[in-house]
Design a protein around this nucleic acid. Structure first.
Lengths: 228, 228
DNA sequence: GAAATAGTGTCTTTGAGACAATATATG
DNA sequence: CATATATTGTCTCAAAGACACTATTTC
């Protein structure tokens, strides 16, 4: 390995941010993500993933978190590296390697997100044609989220401090796009949660118990990579 | 996202290469990996993962494959991106982001690998202190390999065109470091393999059948990322 | 035939999933 | 009490694992 690194490659970070919102047609809870409208070429006018350059004094995950805050004003509850995309021709007239992260934000957090001319929210499965290779990147992020939902406790990142089992189940149903049996779902997750002394009254039915997540069990198992 | 990317960050690729060889003490098949001795500072004299800079005209995976061939003369049967490491202080006096790949090579291929003053093979679980954050990187690669071995057919990348079920089982045992029941193992993999008409004679026991891997089933499920 | 591994059969346990039944709130 | 969801109970099925048993080669 030579001492001199060749010039000519720019390093960027982008983030695929997921939040749950009601679908405009069906009303069911579904995955949405915020996109940023590009103001310059290439792909001026097109929607793209929020992102930016990495500065020399910040780590990759710091750069992702900073960009995310600057462009969408969002602070995610979960942030994980997705993949480094580095095909030669993925950006016209430039060589850009993008380290892409994916993030989950709570519904409340997503509410107060900046939405203006330059930021828009879209259902994750009904995206327009995006700039660069960003459609493919979102597809991969969706696959990772759905895969991980089946074997980890990542769903909790969409919820607040306490929640009912119905709320947790609805998160799973929204992400996996299929109904889950309430009885069986309960048994699968019950051991990983801590029941509180509170229930939610007000519905015209038996009030559900509130649960808290067990901090002694980590959300995801990323092996020796404890951080992000 | 600004038009100008800040300078000052170098982009490198490194690869964690795994091969199976007999353990020098126990004689059992175990994981080994080739390391390169550094000839310059920082960490001159230390062992490090093979790697180098990414040039503007090659993709990340191309860069990984090229570097691997140049430094160790190896051509892997499997190559997958592991993670992008980008902490600010991971390289002294420089800012280097490394996109790390991991690779599997067959025993025969590993045989003819360059081994000299600058390349050495080590048992994966008994490494010396490496340059940079490479010990942590190897730990993560080992975790990924072992995790993936349990739910994919990645073990086949260690073997040739045809193989016996014992050979396949030995690969699993070597990587997972635990004995597996031959009868149960057979049932788990049988459906994903194609039996040939040949058996291996010569041992002082019933000759085992040779199998071929079923090309219609992909080695690993990486979702929308078909390539590497 | 003895030894050694290949390969088959079977039993137990575990977890997922389908679905019935009971519990407890509101209106 | 009707309704709606919460919660519990039970049955079936499939996969994993332990382990006994049979098969076929070489020496």
């Amino acid at each position: 390995m030579d001492t001199q690194a060749p010039e000519g490659i720019s390093l960027a970070v982008s983030t695929v941010i997921f939040a749950l919102r009601p679908h405009p047609v069906t009303g069911l809870s579904t995955l949405w993500l915020p996109l940023v409208r590009r103001t310059r070429d290439p792909f001026a006018g097109k929607w793209a993933l929020p992102g930016g350059w990495v500065t020399p004094d910040e780590s990759l995950s710091d750069a992702a978190a900073r960009n995310l805050l600057e462009t969408t004003a969002l602070e995610p509850t979960y942030l994980e590296q997705l993949y480094a995309f580095g095909d030669v021709d993925r950006s016209p007239d430039a060589r850009v390697v993008s380290v892409v992260y994916w993030a989950l934000v709570r519904a409340e957090e997503a509410e107060r997100a900046a939405e203006g001319d330059n930021v828009g929210w879209f259902p994750a499965d009904e995206l327009p044609e995006l700039a660069f290779d960003h459609n493919a990147i979102v597809d991969y992020a969706l696959w990772r989220l759905r895969t991980k939902m089946e074997y980890s406790r990542i769903a909790l990142a969409f919820l607040g401090e306490t929640f009912t089992l119905s709320e947790l189940r609805e998160v799973h149903e929204a992400v996996l796009q299929k109904p889950l049996d309430p009885a069986n779902f309960r048994r699968q997750v019950e051991g990983t949660l801590v029941p509180t002394d509170h229930v939610v009254t007000g519905g015209r039915h038996r009030p559900p118990r509130l649960y808290r997540y067990d901090e002694s069990i980590e959300l995801v198992h990323n092996g020796p990579l404890a951080h992000a």
